[in-house]
Design a protein around this nucleic acid. Structure first.
Lengths: 150, 150
DNA sequence: TATTGTTATACTCTATAACTATA
DNA sequence: TATAGTTATAGAGTATAACAATA
């Protein structure tokens, strides 16, 4: 009954899934009154712990000027504070407030919940098979990008 | 050797794939000097054919005011023109120029090429298995969103 | 009255360039 | 001299609200 899918049909489904994940994230952002780039910064901060704006600029791959704006917004919304760097008086340590830490915790919980909703029903074997397909695709992508740079 | 992946690890890989696809698209946009939202509009226009700004606003799920700005930019860059609607003098028909049509053709070719690069090496059976995993995940997502609305 | 698209206004994200304070 | 962060300036995308022309 099912004819074999074309590579293009499969890519379309990857894109569709990507859009749905993005939409789910947008819902979380709207509920928490935090924009995408600010969420990204908070997520990074949750992984790294308090760090300089320069480090955030490198991690998020945006300009230092951009980080200034994002941190300004997150200070206004009460998610982070700027603390003095203990040894370098030029630098500031962007530090989560309790509200900011709570946000990151909810974000992590939401992430885990989505994973469970999407994949929790699969048997370990099904999940392994599907994940292997993802791994292969990610590898192909890595090779593709290496090739284009060379 | 491979322990079974966790649902969360699999979701992380879906997100990683999503980011790579987005990065690939960004490269195309930069090469063509067209921004993401304008590309989206042109893609939609390629599917629908010439249509009103109102129809584009509905299709892209943005405000009519926003479409005005996007079309302004695409008129400036020579990708579309505003033509009078044959029967409704309030409306305009956003219409691709030859340059705009060429852009959409290149976008489609790029899409097909990426699909081939990512999935062309898989056997029909492997591709079918992987695609089935995607289908299941998309279905779970659909159910999840229905449930949240109810 | 309702609809199409625009003007007016405002906010966020993004970038480059010039500048200050510190290393 | 080099680095961390800011001010200044600019452009794109997004939204709401008020308005004009037309249906």
């Amino acid at each position: 009954m099912t004819t074999h899918p074309s590579a293009e049909a499969t890519l379309d489904k990857v894109l569709a899934l990507s859009m749905l994940v993005t939409a789910d994230m947008a819902r979380f952002e709207a509920a928490e009154r935090v924009t995408g780039p600010r969420l990204h910064l908070l997520w990074q901060l949750g992984m790294s712990g308090p760090c300089t704006q320069r480090a955030l600029a490198d991690a998020l791959d945006v300009t230092p000027r951009n980080i200034t704006g994002l941190v300004d917004g997150l200070v206004d919304s009460g998610h982070v504070t700027r603390e003095p760097h203990p040894t370098d008086r030029r630098a500031t340590l962007v530090t989560p407030t309790p509200a900011g830490a709570g946000f990151v915790a909810r974000l992590r919980a939401s992430h885990a919940d989505l994973a469970e909703q999407l994949f929790g029903h699969m048997t370990p074997r099904q999940l392994a098979t599907f994940t292997r397909g993802l791994d292969e695709t990610l590898e192909r992508f890595a090779r593709l990008m290496d090739g284009d740079q060379a």
